[in-house]
Design a protein around this nucleic acid. Structure first.
Lengths: 219, 219, 219, 219
DNA sequence: TTTTAAGCGAGACGGTACGTCGTGTCTTGTT
DNA sequence: AACAAGACACGACGTACCGTCTCGCTTAAAA
């Protein structure tokens, strides 16, 4: 009904965000302003989307979040770590909504094609482009062996794999195909397209979808 | 015998590198030190590979090139433009060597598979990874609508397309397939793999190759 | 027996130390930890003497006093006020011990000379120097029109004036002399000597004493 | 005729001001903007005099000097060092102008009395007070064993000693007197008066002058 | 041969963000 | 209420890098 339309539930990632060095005696001292965490992440997202990664300033983030600069540094040790966490905080990661009501000969194949369509559309949106580019910068800065990319794309990957597995169940996709590989290829192609922003001949991703789908199809 | 193995001749790309605002008329004053151009590009590459993009400093580049900082700025207007040019200077661009002697049922299909193999190997090399990550950062800064990516991947794209077209000629690949889409997908997937550096389950790209090849195959 | 040797009783000055905004009515809640007052003043003195005024931190003071920072602020409204109070707390104020058994031709003159001797000795002590320098800093911050200086030097001034008046009584010092001026001059010279810490050619203050004494002497 | 009226020539101090780490190959690189040195020192003085030492900001200094903040830091390593140098740069040190045409019974004695008059007047001037208080703060921060005080007061000391020596020559001051001690006492008393800003009972320094002069007088 | 125009090394300069630190206030839970 | 603990707003500090500028010196072609 709506959650249905969201290919991927956006929550659930978290676990490390904004909680450095506060393990022991819980309840000692004034508790952190919980709203500040969110306000900062929101401000970071908004400014990032609006102006891009390197026009992003800790001061500007703090200002927009209505918070002192030090309050940001209390939670995140650096700008790139903040942006990284923001990306993993679920309030942004690549989800790609897609309508499920695509009618075609094979429902699984159609679902994949629909996902690619949606992704292609969404990924060329200016704000998403800014975020994906920032992802590239941030990942390069805190070189974490790709964990950031992996986590960032996890929702999309999970969703896509579910789609493909369903296709295998339903017989539309041949059983031996390496679904992980296909999912990675699609995500890679899509995100890379976003990075390059080659106006991406509208339809280019469709062609990719066709090729992949053809390759996955049973028979 | 070696040049044979290089899928793409690495020279010839450039033409704009290091020649800003200099009337071709071979003016009167002291001529530029031609070695400096190369020394700077080399220094840039070395430092980039060693320390990553943002631990990269104009001063450090100049020092390592044995040159004054201004000498760098005389040739390139900014750091990101220098790095961009370095990447396109043939010095480095993605070529992807591949052995040509892959025997299989279909020579064209085999060639594509071989290319992916080679690319996968080459792209996980530490220095290549550093460069590709820097590419992402630089492209994000330069906001050039993907021209940098396009140029950077041009050699690989050209080579791959040649392979695919040959496949069509020979009948191994079905005529209607969108070869550009397939090439972009492969390059995107390969480079994105490098970005994420998930050691990319050895064989993951093989699986991608299989899927694509299957989708491209005649019948 | 010791108190005899102290030219000035060091207590009694204060009266305002560590009692801000506390209704004398001995309110309802938990009573203040009386030891904390002293511990804080001691910590302040120790750290000041050890590291100087601006390497002095409220946090460090609190830590050394084994107390929370807020406990300090509950008693003193600011760092400079705390330091000011510490200086006036008897804990430290300039007293200048001097032996009373200086035998000379004129007992009053001798007493003054003895006081200057003692002051010179005491004032070059490292810890006293640190305090006097801090005094200068604090007074500069508090902009209290010299009340701090006045209070800080009050014991010494009182003692010195007593000495001089006795001299006038006994005839050793001429009646018309401006004793206040002389006392201020001596104190100023002595403290300024401490500030400059030019090891103050031992004997320099003796010479000052001689000049002053000569100027004050009857005939 | 004017220089005559200035008790102390204000120049000549210098030698270390604003020339850190620039020893070797003179003439290499762009020379420093010589005006900037002065502009910075002037701005420092003006702001210090206007607002006091701790309302003094490197940014404000730079702004007023029409210079980037880094340009200040290129010349002085810290605020206190800058202020210290400013004080020694001759454009501020205590000089104390005094009219020479004081008629009295003894010219030397009169000159000393005139100096004290002038000093007392000058030292209670708001701007001088600010400077002297800053001196106290700065000297406390870069604890240099009083060199700063010594240098700062050097002009006054030199002048005063000259006066006193002339008095000895002319017979107004007795030959055996310790002139250094007397000079230090006068300077100490005067500056300490400034520090305390006890409105310094007008006439208090006159009384000091009388006492000292009496003590120095021949016979 | 003398200009003259540019390259070059060196380093100052304006600007701007960074991350750190200290102050004084506020807010928890505990005594 | 006091207290320990620690978050918070504010604002200065000193550092680093960018891209531009200005010196003195060198190098070659043009006059």
């Amino acid at each position: 009904m709506h959650a249905e339309n969201t290919l991927v539930p956006v929550e659930q990632v978290q676990e490390q965000g904004a909680s450095q060095g506060r393990s022991p005696g819980r309840g000692r001292g004034r508790p952190r302003n919980a709203e500040a965490d969110l306000a900062i992440l929101d401000a970071t997202r908004d400014l990032l989307v609006a102006d891009g990664y390197d026009a992003l300033t800790m001061q500007a983030i703090a200002d927009r979040a209505g918070v002192a600069r030090q309050t940001v540094y209390r939670r995140w040790p650096s700008k790139s770590r903040l942006v990284a966490d923001m990306m993993l905080s679920g309030n942004l990661a690549v989800g790609f909504e897609a309508p499920t009501d695509v009618a075609g000969t094979d429902p699984a194949i159609d679902a994949v094609r629909a996902w690619l369509h949606a992704a292609a559309r969404q990924v060329t949106d200016a704000s998403q482009v800014a975020v994906i580019r920032a992802l590239a910068s941030v990942a390069a800065e805190n070189d974490d062996d790709g964990r950031l990319y992996a986590t960032f794309t996890a929702p999309a990957r999970a969703h896509l794999l579910a789609l493909l597995r369903a296709g295998v169940e339903q017989g539309g996709i041949r059983r031996g195909a390496d679904l992980d590989a296909a999912a990675d290829a699609m995500i890679g192609a899509v995100l890379f397209t976003a990075l390059t922003r080659t106006p991406s001949r509208p339809g280019s991703l469709d062609a990719l979808a066709d090729v992949l789908v053809e390759g996955l199809a049973a028979r």
